[in-house]
Amino acid sequence: MTAPAILPGRGLPDRLTGLFWRRPNLLLVLLITPPLLWLGVIYLGSLAALLLQSFYAIDEFSGVVKEEFTLKTYAELFRAQNLDIILRTILMAAAVTIACAVLAFPIAYYAARYAKGRWKAAFYLGVMLPLWSSYLVKVYAWKLILAKEGILTWATDATGTGFLISGLLSIPGLGGSSLSTSYIGTFLVFVYVWLPYMILPMQASLERVPTSMLEASADLGATRRQTLRTVILPLALPGVIAGSIFTFSLTMGDYIIPQIVGTSARFIGLAVYQQQGTAGNIPLAAAFAVVPIVIMVIYLMLAKRAGAFDAL
């Protein structure tokens, strides 16, 4: 007896597979509807609610939000102390992003080019490990490390390198009485906490640069430096941009770190937290929250114009 041309179905899985084969779009729709709903309703919805709130204003004495359209709250953003907060945050986010990029590049490059097998696993473990412990624990630990009577002071005193820290702390505007109460301390903790978010996308993009591309560059007469500048960096740029979006926006939105380590001067995240949480000024909080969104949009437009996504 010869086998039939059409095999008998084996129940529901076969029927479903058949259905999806006949209507390929059905599976797609089923798969992307939940995330789209999530994105559309929960995410964009709350974003819209946020935007709406920022066009209200608060009654200063009772602290009750008046639901009338006004630009008063946005005008408040341009008060000197609020502009300070915005500028301070942008500078910090930019400094953190640059430092993360500079620190992450050699690590990511090593991992992408040289690490194999067990070393690669060690790399991933090393990069991810800090992400496994609680963020708060890490920040409090850093407060103790950086404190005036903390581990770092002890270590530098023991090694006779205390002048390094006191030199750093005497920088006007950035220094302070200890690392834990200065902008430098805030910066250090930000860099530590967000570094993995820069390394991973950078490593992914460097890994996609074929070795032959680097060999071709050397073959044509380029020095290491020229290869780095004209081939590796442009090709790794999408990863650098992705990483910088993480570090930049995470720094702009964070409100825990500057609260625990730093000078008490407000950052946008802290201002949002304080305005909505302690001052009950949700409109101003919303207006503050719009600032990072606007900055990120501008940043992405500049990056696109600079050709950051050409290699995509």
Binding site: P210, S212, M213, E215, A216, S217, A218, D219, L220, G221, A222, T223, T230, V231, L235
Partner: peptide
């Protein structure tokens, strides 16, 4: 990069 020799790569390696 100092050898006066050039290569056509198997995967072309165009930038």
């Amino acid at each position: 990069h100092l050898r006066n020799v050039n290569t056509v790569f198997q995967d072309y390696a165009l930038f």
